[in-house]
Computed example of a mutant assay.
Amino acid sequence: MVSTESREEIERTLGQVPSWMELIAEPAGDHSWGIFRDLTFGETELSPREKGLIGVAAASAMKCPYCAYFHKAESRLAGVSEAEIEEAVNLASSTQYFSTLLHGNEVDVDEFAAETDEIVEHIEQQEATADD
């Protein structure tokens, strides 16, 4: 439940107070709206396109149909193409796949980080050589 002030702000911003906002426990209502408002609609380091695509990828990995629907709509509003949405879902799938592989096999995190740093350094050197 949100305060009257937040309810009015939500209605101005979204055109309505979504029914799911009523499910938020009273002590967290205004705070939850603030987080949603500021991260989704606020001016941040990420563009609306980036925010939408991150949301699509996260929702896909979490297998949340509610979040997937919302973030796909958010992405489309920001001009993201269907091909870009599909790619974001594929990247989330790939990340989840390899995460399962790494966790399930208990790959040493420090060793993984060291290898990743070496790979990044190699790619940076390759790109520098290509620019010459």
Rank of each mutant, 00 (worst) to 15 (best):
76 R>L: 11
39 L>H: 10
93 S>W: 06
105 N>Q: 09
92 A>W: 07
65 P>I: 10
119 I>L: 14
25 A>T: 12
41 F>G: 14
54 I>L: 14
53 L>M: 06
121 E>D: 10
76 R>A: 08
35 I>E: 05
77 L>E: 14
89 V>F: 09
21 M>H: 10
23 L>R: 08
125 Q>Y: 05
124 E>D: 13
100 T>V: 02
94 S>R: 03
72 K>E: 00
96 Q>Y: 01
88 A>T: 03
32 S>M: 07
120 V>A: 09
129 T>I: 02
128 A>M: 07
123 I>K: 09
19 S>F: 13
35 I>T: 15
59 A>G: 00
64 C>G: 09
130 A>P: 01
110 D>V: 03
68 A>L: 08
43 E>Y: 07
115 E>L: 13
115 E>F: 15
61 A>V: 05
80 V>Y: 00
124 E>K: 13
128 A>N: 12
104 G>T: 01
59 A>I: 00
102 L>D: 09
104 G>F: 00
96 Q>N: 05
43 E>R: 15
33 W>S: 03
97 Y>I: 02
128 A>Q: 14
119 I>A: 14
61 A>M: 05
97 Y>K: 00
107 V>W: 07
84 E>F: 13
114 A>I: 11
70 F>V: 02
73 A>T: 08
70 F>Q: 01
18 P>L: 08
30 D>T: 11
49 R>N: 03
99 S>G: 15
114 A>W: 04
126 Q>T: 14
33 W>P: 01
75 S>I: 01
114 A>H: 03
96 Q>E: 04
51 K>C: 04
27 P>S: 11
118 E>C: 07
111 E>V: 08
105 N>S: 05
55 G>M: 00
86 E>A: 15
65 P>L: 08
46 L>Q: 07
97 Y>S: 06
27 P>A: 11
46 L>P: 02
63 K>A: 09
29 G>A: 03
66 Y>W: 12
116 T>D: 06
27 P>W: 08
64 C>K: 08
50 E>H: 13
73 A>P: 01
81 S>C: 04
110 D>I: 01
90 N>E: 15
123 I>W: 03
63 K>I: 05
110 D>Q: 00
82 E>A: 11
40 T>M: 11
67 C>A: 13
116 T>Y: 06
112 F>C: 04
124 E>C: 09
112 F>N: 04
83 A>W: 01
90 N>V: 07
99 S>A: 11
49 R>P: 02
51 K>S: 05
80 V>K: 02
18 P>V: 14
59 A>K: 00
86 E>V: 12
108 D>T: 02
109 V>G: 05
26 E>A: 15
38 D>A: 11
122 H>F: 14
104 G>R: 02
28 A>I: 03
74 E>R: 02
76 R>F: 09
70 F>H: 01
74 E>H: 03
34 G>F: 02
119 I>S: 10
71 H>D: 03
116 T>R: 13
57 A>M: 14
81 S>Y: 02
111 E>A: 04
95 T>S: 14
22 E>V: 11
37 R>K: 15
